[in-house]
Amino acid sequence: MTRLRSDLVWIPTFAVLVAFAVPWPLWGVDRVVAGLPVWIWWHVAWLGLCAALFALFVRSGAWERGMGRAATAPPVDGSGSAARGGDER
C-alpha cells in the first residue's frame, strides 16, 4: 500500500478546517473592522486558507494515496506540471 504515515495529519487538519470555519472564539464579539463584523472577516480568511490547504492536499499526492492509489510523481522540473494526472482514462 502506498499510504504514508505523514498523510494521516490531513485527517485532523480537515477536522480543524471544518470546525473553525465557524468563528467560535469570536462568539458574542461585536467589533466592526473595515466595514464588516470581525467574525465575517475570520470566515472569509478561513475559507481562503481552506482553498490553499485543499490545493496543497491535492499537490502533495495525499489525495491519491488516501484512496490507496499510486501517487503521481511530484513535478521535479519546477515547470508547474503538477497538473499531470495519474489517470489516463
Binding site: L17, V18, A21, V22, P23, W39, I40, H43, L47, C50
Partner: peptide, 10 residues
C-alpha cells in the same frame, strides 16, 4: 453566511 459557508465551502 457562516452556516452556509461552513457547510458548503468546507
Amino acid at each position: 453566511l457562516i452556516v452556509m459557508g461552513t457547510l458548503d465551502g468546507v
